Structures are given as C-alpha cells and as structure tokens.
Simulated assay, not measured.
Amino acid sequence: IRKRMPKTKSSDPLGVAGIKAVRETYNEYAPPIQFRKAEALRLEHRLSDLVNQAYGLTPEEIDLMWKTAPPRMPIARQI
C-alpha cells in the first residue's frame, strides 16, 4: 500500500491505526473471496468434465484438446 500511495511529507501517512484497519479489512474480505474463487474453479472443471463426457471424448482426445488449447484458456488443465 505504501508503494502505491502518493508521496507526502509525512514519513508514514497510514500510521499504525491505518495499517491495522487495512489488515482487518483484508482479513474480513479476502477469505470469502478466495473461497468463492476456488469454488468457481472447481465448478468450471466439473462442467468441463461433464461436457467432455457428453461428447464421449476419449482420454487421448481430451489430452490432444488440452495440448492444442490456446495459451489464454480461462481455466488450467486439471492434473
């Protein structure tokens, strides 16, 4: 945060109370966001598996599909 803040004359613009408030806010919001992100990724992989199953793809075809996938795929391959 200090790196991103505008330069001021004060050596510590946030102060102890400001840093504490930032940490508390982070601890309040970050874990639920991280949990939802992990859950979304799990569901994306599940959906991918269901689509592959619906098309009747063999493991070799799925492997080929991942090998030839564009570099900016929305999800990474499950190992």
Rank of each mutant, 00 (worst) to 15 (best):
S11C: 09
H45Q: 10
H45V: 03
T68I: 08
D63A: 15
G18W: 00
P32Q: 08
Y26W: 12
D49L: 03
E39I: 12
P59R: 07
S11M: 08
W66C: 02
R42D: 15
G18A: 03
S11E: 07
D12N: 12
A76W: 05
A69I: 09
T8P: 01
E44P: 04
G56T: 11
P32L: 04
E61P: 08
R23K: 00
A21W: 04
P70R: 13
R46D: 15
P74T: 06
N52Y: 10
R23W: 01
I1P: 11
A21Q: 08
R42Q: 10
R4H: 12
A69P: 01
G56Q: 08
K3C: 02
V16D: 13
L57A: 03
R2N: 14
T58C: 05
L47E: 08
H45C: 02
K37P: 00
G56R: 09
I75P: 09
P32I: 07
M65L: 15
P6Q: 06
Q34N: 14
L14G: 06
Q78D: 04
A17H: 04
K37S: 13
P70C: 03
Y55M: 05
A54P: 01
M73I: 13
R77H: 13
A17P: 04
M65C: 01
I19K: 12
P6R: 13
I19M: 08
I1G: 13
V22S: 00
A69T: 09
R23G: 00
R4I: 15
R72A: 02
E39G: 02
Q78C: 03
T8F: 13
N52Q: 05
A69Q: 10
Q34K: 15
K37I: 11
F35E: 09
L64W: 07
R72K: 13
E44A: 15
M5R: 01
R72T: 03
E28H: 08
I1K: 09
V22H: 06
Y29G: 01
R36N: 02
I33Q: 10
R36L: 15
I62W: 07
L41A: 06
N52V: 02
P13Y: 03
